Simulated scan of single mutants.
Amino acid sequence: MFHRKPLEERIAERVAKRPPLKEGKHFEHRPALIVFCVIIALVALKIVGAFVLMKWGVQ
């Protein structure tokens, strides 16, 4: 329609330009690490909160 490459080809070209991931590194960029840590913290807080409510006998 606008003489552009399909989305899959554009993504493949962009991925091919990136350098390989360093050995032992699990997250490619900092925001991914931050989001992962926030999700883990929320899950832990929810579990701890549930145990506290059970301890106090709140229903």
Score class of each variant (00 low, 15 high):
residue 8 E to Q: 06
residue 20 P to T: 04
residue 5 K to W: 04
residue 35 V to H: 15
residue 46 K to L: 15
residue 51 F to H: 11
residue 25 K to I: 09
residue 13 E to V: 05
residue 56 W to G: 14
residue 10 R to S: 03
residue 31 P to M: 01
residue 34 I to W: 05
residue 39 I to C: 05
residue 42 L to R: 02
residue 46 K to E: 12
residue 48 V to A: 11
residue 28 E to Q: 11
residue 14 R to E: 13
residue 7 L to C: 01
residue 12 A to K: 11
residue 14 R to S: 12
residue 27 F to N: 00
residue 44 A to T: 06
residue 47 I to D: 08
residue 57 G to L: 02
residue 19 P to T: 05
residue 48 V to Y: 14
residue 37 C to N: 14
residue 18 R to M: 12
residue 12 A to R: 12
residue 40 I to Y: 13
residue 33 L to E: 09
residue 18 R to C: 05
residue 12 A to C: 03
residue 36 F to I: 02
residue 15 V to G: 01
residue 30 R to V: 05
residue 52 V to L: 08
residue 9 E to F: 01
residue 45 L to F: 15
residue 20 P to L: 07
residue 22 K to S: 15
residue 57 G to H: 02
residue 9 E to L: 01
residue 12 A to T: 04
residue 46 K to N: 14
residue 18 R to P: 00
residue 24 G to L: 01
residue 16 A to W: 01
residue 53 L to W: 13
residue 21 L to V: 09
residue 5 K to L: 09
residue 50 A to Y: 15
residue 13 E to H: 04
residue 24 G to F: 00
residue 20 P to A: 07
residue 21 L to Q: 10
residue 27 F to Y: 10
residue 48 V to G: 07
residue 17 K to R: 15
residue 21 L to K: 12
residue 39 I to K: 04
residue 5 K to F: 03
residue 39 I to Q: 05
residue 50 A to H: 15
residue 36 F to T: 07
residue 59 Q to V: 14
residue 31 P to S: 06
residue 28 E to T: 07
residue 18 R to D: 07
residue 22 K to R: 12
residue 46 K to S: 14
